[in-house]
Design a protein around this nucleic acid. Structure first.
Length: 1063
RNA sequence: GGGAGCAUAGCUCAGCUGGUUCAGAGCAUCUGCCUUACAAGCAGAGGGCCGGCGGUUCGAAUCCGUCUGCUCCCACCA
């Protein structure tokens, strides 16, 4: 027999995967055994394997292989998903590269291209799974758009329609203008975008100018006065630096205000009336301003003075700091703030209140010298920096903040909060929409946040979800200003035909020119992006198909809450509950061609019918219209497709044809499935809906357990993604570290539900483990047995011990599996093999170099190895098969993957404990050897002080073997010329020729003594505490008493040794 | 804004209904070894106010408050 000196994973992996396939070990057909079923979460048919798949499918394979080895009829159904949006987007892109536009093709032509694409790129991922060792029943491979699955989808749709659960309705949907399709909420990613907040002027109609006119006090985005008060050019010149300085100092101050116990909460960047202040305590009416670094500038000082007066007139006191003060003397700054907080501000010196504002919030001439303002205003460079109100709206205007000024064309109201005193004067009035020049009402609703912007909200029911709800509530008109591709339609007036983002730029200019732009602030907001095309989504009213969720959700909700369907880890129950309690109807239509076309057929005279086939539709249409002459070509089928998830949610049913043939043998046998392994990201998309489908169609759960894996991240915690380039190619990894190594690397760091911080060192560890096992195998296989060789007592003892150890480990592994603690199960096996088997067991039984081994020991060892391989097989299928095949003579058709998982047997804990003690003794001897420079080659003698506790035992032979001890002797007296050492409370002695440094030994022992005495004291304290003795359970008391006697014995021994050394 | 969760060794994490699994594991680190299976290895070692502060208790990493910091989910404040 010729064993390669290196484990060659690639050949081994291919060899055994072919072997398994050839013998049909993955195949499952219903029989008398208990079934164990997993359906794969179908990956995108044209996708390639990434680390998430690796993790997910490794776990599934582990579960399936283990089930197969424990006598179950294990069935793992593979398949792929048509992924309508992603695939269609890719086909469109590919066609575009060839200069073909989708709009130039008919539906049939396009689908032909899509199928070509699918056949060309499809299924690669399944081939990659084979490399991983996935033991799927490949004969069952399904595709969400193959005939049986398509039929299931259509059948389900028609069925749900007939039950009244599918309906058609106008709804606000997430519109993807690039793909021209509606998206579900789950397909929208919100990203922070640096945008602008535009403050627009909606003039009140009819305008009523305030008496004496008014002067506007305008601020820039940082809270500084603009040209109304000071030279604009100066501001502009310094604006860059001001921002920078104020940000650093402000941030520092903000940290201070939050970090110190000031007995008060500060708000940051708060708006008081017209002024944005840096920090404010509303309770103490204290404003803190941090200067932008130009406090010596007279113009700035002037501006600050105006601001201060303004704030003080509103009852605020203002503390002003410079950047330098904040950054260099934070304590002093804090002190001053505390001081101000302690003493409430006194009223302004002059007393009295000046009426500095008119009813619309404009500064009046009282606020400052009017002439001065007018003079300064000549320097204003922009239209919006005007000092007088625009024509037509003298003072009578509402300022509305928006991030999307282009949507004003669809405005049909302005909304205020009825409880807001700031806007109370607007109640019942009407305003003029800028540009569009339409009059719209001011409505009142508590939805409006009084603190945000100006407390006024423009309402665009057609283009904002919340506005849509307001529109419903107050019966507002909806004006849809967009075409499907995101350009403006005829309601866009002069902007018709332009793209939405172009319009935004243009309308900004036009508003400024018209004097209707109050100000523009930089603003960070969340914008929804299409998951597939990555363009900003557009909330849009549109006619869509929906599936009612309310009734369906109930059994699915209960099933999870009552643990009929169990989530691992259970914390995801919370997430699930929250979603299910607030579930909304499911928009199931998509404006795509690649997918299952909605089987709704429109009649020429209006109305529609829903049917499984065009023929059935025709019959239904004839009946509905009362027109028997109706022909098939008179009917027009709905152009939309169904959401991809509308086929996936049937997956556990449809792969066994349970929708089309609910009574077939397969579905009856395999359903409900056992475990589902998936990512928590799709708990709503997929898991929840599958559970619903299960109850809807079989009134039964669709799986027992859901195991949620984590998201695979890189070492730095970033999600792995193509764009970051931080995702290793799994295939390359497998080539480098072997499939088994990668499988192990993935599992080692994957506690259920925790994200996985993937690091290549983990797969390296996996590879090293393969190598370790391979070498252990080479050792064992290299031994020659000889019937004449007697079995050493050490070997006999080791076999006794390891047998027990093995079973205690199997019990542990079983326990871990029951709790879905897969990485813990693997770790248990890892330690069992590396530490217990290789480092201890094999070292004990290893015969001297080139000496034969006795028959019994070799047999027992081979048997142990066999069992270890079976135990490990689900995790590392290839290596274990290779070794298992080598271990004994196997027949063609035998395989470890269809062998039996070692069952747990009872084990003797006493033996395990005894061995633990032995290992302590051995470690102590090794330490002594190392310290005294006694080489391992050099055999030594060992003396043990005789006592009640220490009797000669078979384990002595193990100590002798591993420590190269020539003789173990039990003595009543202390031997001469020996190094003493203590394990627990037993004294050991090693003879030594060299002299011992007594002082050093005494010092070591004295330290040890002190520690033990301290330990005893703490134990005694407990035992002398009456309340402890009275309240603690007997078990605890007992252990404390044992600690006491052990410590006392140990102290005695140490003291004796010290005495001996001193004599 | 609403909800959930996390904080334990340098890193990744265990630690269940308070007490022998109570301060742990793996990796990493350090020291000494090329000892004929394995240097991808062997033999040893060090390392922690269990996030802070209170409380309950005879006893708290564990239970309860609270503060701080982080993460995720939902909502999408214009």
């Amino acid at each position: 027999m010729d064993i390669p000196s290196k484990y060659a994973p690639e050949q081994v992996e291919n060899k055994w995967y072919d072997y398994w396939m050839k013998h049909g070990f993955f195949r499952s057909v219903p029989d008398g055994r208990e079934p164990y079923t997993i359906v794969i979460p179908p990956p995108n048919v044209t996708g390639v394997l990434h680390m998430g798949h690796m993790l997910n499918n490794t776990i599934q394979d582990v579960l399936v292989r283990r089930a197969r080895m424990t006598g179950k009829n294990a069935c793992w159904v593979p398949g792929t998903d048509h992924a309508s949006i992603a695939t269609e987007a890719r086909v469109v892109a590919k066609l575009a590269q060839e200069g073909v536009k989708k709009s130039d093709l008919t539906r049939e032509q396009f689908l032909e291209h899509a199928w070509d694409w699918t056949h060309k790129h499809g299924g690669i991922i399944l081939e990659q799974l084979k490399k991983l060792g996935a033991s799927c029943d490949w004969e069952r491979t399904c595709f969400t758009m193959d005939d049986a699955r398509s039929e299931s989808v259509i059948k389900a749709f028609v069925d749900l329609y007939k039950k009244g659960l599918v309906y058609r309705g106008v709804r606000m949907v997430n519109w993807d203008p690039a793909a021209k399709t509606a998206l579900s909420d789950e397909e929208v990613n919100y990203k922070e975008q640096q945008g602008k907040l535009y403050y627009l002027r909606y003039n009140i109609a009819p305008p009523s100018p305030p008496e004496g006119g008014g002067v506007r006090n305008t601020h820039d985005g940082y809270g500084y006065l603009t040209a109304n008060a000071i030279n604009y050019g100066l501001l502009k010149e310094h604006a860059q630096n001001m921002r920078k300085f104020s940000t650093v100092a402000e941030s520092a101050l903000w940290e201070m205000l939050r970090g110190k116990n000031l007995d008060e909460k500060f708000r940051r960047q708060h708006i008081i009336g017209d002024v944005i202040v840096d920090f404010v305590s509303l309770r103490h009416k204290l404003v803190i301003e941090v200067d932008g670094g130009y406090h010596n500038d007279p113009e700035i000082q002037k501006a600050d003075k105006i601001r201060t007066e303004y704030l003080e007139s509103h009852g605020y006191s203002v503390v002003r700091f410079t950047n330098e003060e904040v950054l260099e003397n934070p304590d002093e700054v804090l002190g001053r703030i505390k001081e101000r907080l302690a003493a409430p501000p006194s009223p302004p010196e002059r007393g009295g209140v000046r009426n500095t504002h008119d009813e619309h919030g404009y500064l009046t001439a009282n606020a400052l010298n009017n002439e001065q303002i007018l003079e300064k205003s000549d320097n204003a460079e922009r239209g919006w920096l005007r000092t007088s109100p625009p024509s037509g709206g003298l003072g009578g205007a509402v300022i509305v903040a928006t991030t999307r000024p282009e949507t004003i064309l669809g405005d049909t109201a302005v909304c205020i909060n009825p409880n807001d005193p700031k806007t109370a004067h607007l109640k019942g009035k009407r305003v003029i929409v800028p540009i569009a020049n339409r009059e719209v009402p001011i409505i009142e609703d508590e939805y409006v946040d009084m603190e945000f912007g100006t407390g006024c909200l423009k309402v665009t029911p057609a283009h904002d979800v919340n506005d849509y709800m307001l529109g419903e509530k107050y019966n507002l008109e909806s004006i849809d200003i967009f075409n499907d591709d995101g350009t403006l339609n005829k309601h866009g007036l002069q902007y018709e035909g332009m793209d939405r983002f172009e319009v935004r730029k243009q309308i900004e200019q036009d508003l400024i020119a018209a004097g209707l732009m109050e100000k523009v602030e930089p603003y960070v907001n969340n914008v929804g992006f299409s998951e597939r095309t990555d363009v900003p989504i557009e909330p849009k009213l549109s006619m869509q198909w929906f599936l009612k969720m309310g009734e369906m959700a109930k059994p699915a909700f209960d099933a999870v809450m009552e643990d009929d369907v169990m989530f691992h880890p259970a914390k995801f129950k919370n997430t699930y509950r929250h979603w299910m309690e607030n579930i909304k109807d499911w928009c199931i239509s998509r404006q795509l061609w690649w997918g299952h076309r909605i089987p709704a057929y429109y009649l020429p005279e209006g109305g529609y019918v829903v049917a499984e086939t065009p023929e059935k539709a025709l019959a239904a249409a004839r009946e509905k219209s009362g027109n028997p002459a109706l022909r098939l070509q008179d009917l027009r089928q709905d152009d939309d497709c169904l959401d991809t998830w509308f086929s996936s949610w049937l997956w556990p049913l449809s792969v066994f044809d349970g929708i089309n043939n609910p009574d077939n043998d397969e579905i009856k046998y395999y359903y409900p499935t056992n475990d589902l392994v998936t990512a928590p990201e799709i708990i709503f998309f997929w898991v929840a809906r599958m559970i619903m489908a299960g109850y809807e169609y079989r009134n039964q759960r669709c799986f027992r357990n859901v195991y949620f894996t984590g998201i695979v991240r890189d070492k730095l915690g970033r999600k792995m993604s193509k764009s970051l380039g931080n995702s290793p190619d799994p295939i390359v990894l497998m080539n480098q570290y072997s499939a088994d190594g990668v499988r192990m690397g993935m599992l080692l760091c994957s506690a259920a539900g925790n994200d996985i911080l993937f690091d290549e060192s983990q797969v390296e560890q996996g590879r090293n483990f393969c190598n370790k096992i391979w070498n252990a195998f080479r050792l064992v296989k290299g031994w020659e047995s000889d019937a004449r060789t007697a079995q050493p007592e050490s070997s006999k003892t080791a076999i006794l011990w390891f047998g027990n150890r093995l079973h205690s480990a199997i019990a542990e592994v079983n326990d871990h599996f029951e709790k879905f603690r897969i990485s813990d199960a693997l770790m248990t096996i890892y330690k069992l093999i590396w530490d217990d088997f290789c480092s201890w067991y094999l070292e004990i039984i290893k015969p001297a170099y080139q000496q034969p081994i006795d028959v019994q020991t070799l047999e027992a060892t081979t048997d142990f190895f066999d069992r270890l391989m079976r135990l490990l097989h689900p995790f590392m299928p290839f290596l274990t098969e290779e070794i298992w095949q080598w271990l004994r003579q196997r027949k063609e058709g035998e395989s470890i993957m269809v062998s039996d998982m070692p069952a747990v047997e009872s084990f003797d804990n006493e033996i395990l404990r005894k061995f633990d003690y032995v290992t302590e003794v051995i470690v102590a001897i090794r330490t002594q050897r190392a310290q005294r420079n006694i080489l391992n080659k050099e055999a030594i003698e060992l003396f043990i002080k005789k006592s009640n506790e220490t009797q000669p035992s078979p384990f002595d032979s193990v100590i002798a073997k591993l420590c190269n001890i020539s003789k173990i002797e039990y003595l009543d007296t202390k031997p001469e010329n020996c190094i003493p050492f203590i394990v627990r409370s037993t004294e050991f002695f090693i003879p030594i020729s060299k002299s011992v440094n007594k002082a050093e030994e005494i010092e070591k022992l004295t330290k040890e003594l002190e520690y033990t005495k301290g330990f005893l004291t703490s134990v005694m304290q407990k035992l002398n505490n009456e309340r402890f003795v009275n309240n603690a359970p007997e078990k605890v008391l007992e252990s404390e008493r044992k600690k006491k006697t052990d410590a006392e014995a140990r102290i005695l021994v140490i003291e004796e040794q010290i005495k001996a050394l001193k004599s």
